[in-house]
Computed example of a mutant assay.
Amino acid sequence: MKLIVPVQDAVTALAADLEPTAAELDAIEHEAPLIAAELELLDVQIALLDRPASPLDERRLRRAANKVLAARAEVANRGASVREGDAA
């Protein structure tokens, strides 16, 4: 039997390249509050998929969305202050 698919080398990264770098871990830690707020918003949105929203549900959704906005602003402001400190 003759193979019609070309034989190629593997294109996946080596095992040593699979671990995140220290800079990537710092970036994840820096954005952790935003990630948590986005997960909370997603949980509320998922809960509202199969039922109509009650006034309490609407309040939960608004609060979660506001929390995401506040976390985004905090991450953006903290990132700007870090850049300013690096430049000095």
Rank of each mutant, 00 (worst) to 15 (best):
A23C: 06
A76H: 02
D9C: 04
L56F: 14
A37T: 04
V44M: 00
E40C: 02
V82S: 11
K67I: 01
I4S: 14
L39W: 01
E84D: 08
V7Q: 04
R72I: 04
E31V: 07
L56S: 15
L25G: 08
G85T: 08
K67M: 04
R60F: 15
G85S: 11
V82Y: 10
A15K: 11
P55R: 06
V44I: 07
Q8H: 09
A23K: 10
K67A: 14
E19F: 07
P20L: 15
P55K: 07
V44G: 01
L42S: 09
I46K: 00
A27L: 08
A65I: 00
I35D: 08
S81F: 13
N66M: 12
E58Q: 15
G85Y: 04
P6E: 05
I46R: 00
L69Y: 05
A32F: 09
Q45G: 00
E31T: 09
I4N: 14
R51Y: 01
A10D: 12
I4C: 06
D50I: 00
V44N: 01
A32Q: 07
N77I: 04
K2I: 09
E24L: 13
R63E: 13
I28P: 03
L25P: 09
L42K: 12
A73C: 02
D57Q: 12
A64C: 06
E24K: 11
A10H: 02
R51G: 02
L48M: 03
V7E: 06
R59L: 15
N66W: 03
I4M: 11
R62P: 02
A87F: 07
I35Y: 14
A10R: 02
R72K: 15
D86A: 15
I4L: 14
E24T: 09
A22W: 00
A32C: 02
L48D: 01
A15V: 15
E74N: 14
E58I: 13
H30W: 11
A16R: 05
A22S: 14
V11S: 08
R60S: 07
L61K: 06
P52W: 01
P20M: 12
M1R: 06
D86Y: 05
A70C: 02
L49S: 03
E24N: 05
A80S: 10
A71E: 13
L56P: 02
I4R: 08
P33N: 11
